[in-house]
Nucleic acid binder design. Sequence first.
DNA 1: CTTATATGATCGAGTTCCGTTCTGTGACCA
DNA 2: TGGTCACAGAACGGAACTCGATCATATAAG
Lengths: 234, 234
Amino acid sequence: MSLAGLFDVDSAVTGQQVRAEPIQRRSAERLSALLDAAAEAVDAVGFDRITTAMIAERAGASIGTVYRYYPDRVAVLQALHERTVQRFRERVVEEFESSPPTTWWDVVDCAVSAFVGLYRSEPGFRIMQFADREGATLGEGTPSDDVARETGFFATRLAMVLAARFGLPDEPELIFRVEIAVEMADSLLCRAFLHDPLGDERFIAECRRVVHDYLATFYGPVVAFPGVDVSVAV
Amino acid sequence: MSLAGLFDVDSAVTGQQVRAEPIQRRSAERLSALLDAAAEAVDAVGFDRITTAMIAERAGASIGTVYRYYPDRVAVLQALHERTVQRFRERVVEEFESSPPTTWWDVVDCAVSAFVGLYRSEPGFRIMQFADREGATLGEGTPSDDVARETGFFATRLAMVLAARFGLPDEPELIFRVEIAVEMADSLLCRAFLHDPLGDERFIAECRRVVHDYLATFYGPVVAFPGVDVSVAV
DNA sequence: CTTATATGATCGAGTTCCGTTCTGTGACCA
DNA sequence: TGGTCACAGAACGGAACTCGATCATATAAG
C-alpha cells in the first residue's frame, strides 16, 4: 500500500452534501467557483458573517445557483471544508514525494509543513479548524457524524502509515497517541496563525518539538532531530 | 500577592459588551438571568441554533430586554464566555484553597481539575472553546481585541503565579511556554468532552501527562508525579 | 407621609435583513 | 420542436434588531 494511496481521494469521507451532480462541464466549474468564492469570503469576513448572497455575487452567480448545488448555507461551508481537507492530504503526499520520509518523524514533519504551507497560500484554509469543532456543537441529530470525526479519521490514516512503513507497533494505542499528537499540533498551529497571517514561527517550531517529544516518549527519539534538545534543561 | 489576588475578578479583561450598566438591583438579576438562559440554550441546541427569542423566553424576559443590555446576539455569547472564564478562574482558586499547591505541578493539576469539574457541572461551559477561536474569525474591525487573547491572558496570569510562588524563572519564555501548555491542555480537554459529556478519561489523563512532560522539559520533573514515567519507553 | 416627577426598566409590535423557495426564461440536446 | 438542464431574481418566511408606549422605582417637593 503506497503512501499516496493511504491518503488518497477515494478513501475520503464523502458527505452527500451536493444536491445535484454536475452533468455538463460548465457546472463543475461553477461548483468550484462557488467554493472559491466561499473561501475568499471566509478570509474576508469570517465564518458566520458569510451570507449566501455574498457567495453568489463573488462567484458571479445568483442565489438560485447556490441552492441548485447545495441544500443550505452550512452545506457550502462543509463542502469547502472537505475540499480543504482533501487538498491538505494531497499536499502531504506532495511533501512525501519531494522529500521522501525515512523516519516516523519525517512523516510528522511533512504534515506540519503541509499545514503551514497551505495556511499561507490557500484562501480560507482556516476552515480546517471550524467544521471539526462545529460538528460537535451541532450535537444531536447531525446526519453526517463522520464529518465530525475528521481529525480522528486523519489520525487513523496517519497511524496506519506510521505502522506500515516505519515499524511503529500496530496497536490501538498508536491510533490514540497519534490522535493526541494531531490534536495538539492542530491547536498550536491554529494559534500560530491566530494573529499572524504568515504564522508565528515560535509556535510552529514549538509545535514540531512538542509532537516529536510526545511521540518519542513511546517510540524513541529520532537521531539528529534538528534543533531540539530532548534532555531536560535548566 | 496572594494566589486569589492573581486570579481575581478585578483584574479580568472587561470588554465593553454591555450596553447599559445596571443601576437598580433588579437589573443585575435580569442580566445574570439572561446569561443563565443563554448557557442553558448552549447545552440544549448549540451555539448557532440559539435565537434571541429563545434566550428571552427562557429568562422570562422579552426581546427588547435582551437588546437593552447587549448590542447584538453574539455579544450575549461573548458575555457568557467571559462569565464562564471568570468562574473558571474562581474555581481554580477554590481548588488552590482546598488543596494548596506545593509544586508547580500542583498548580497545573488544579487548573485541569477545575476545567474538568466545570465542564461537568456548569451549564454551557463548552462556550470556553468557542469565543477564543471565534474572536479571531471576526478578524479585522473587532473593537475588543482583548477578548480574543483570553487564553493568552490566562496564561500570563498563570505564569506569574508559577514564577512568584514556585521559583520558576521569571523570563519571557515562561509566559510563552505556559501559553503553549494552556493551548495544548485546552484542545485535549475539549477533545475529551467532544463526544462524552463526562469527559473521556483517557484524554484527560493524557492531557495531564503531556502538560507535565512539556513543562518538565524546562523546569525539571516533579518528584513522585503520579502515574507518569518520564523516561523514554520502548 | 403623600404626591409629583424624572428616569430606569420592560414590553412587544413593527422593520429590516437574510436564508430559502419558486416560478419564469434562456441554453443545450435529440 | 419538444424536453431537460441551468440560471436569474422576485417572493416568502423567519429571525435579528428597533422604537415608541407603558410600567416600576427612586428622589423631591409639599
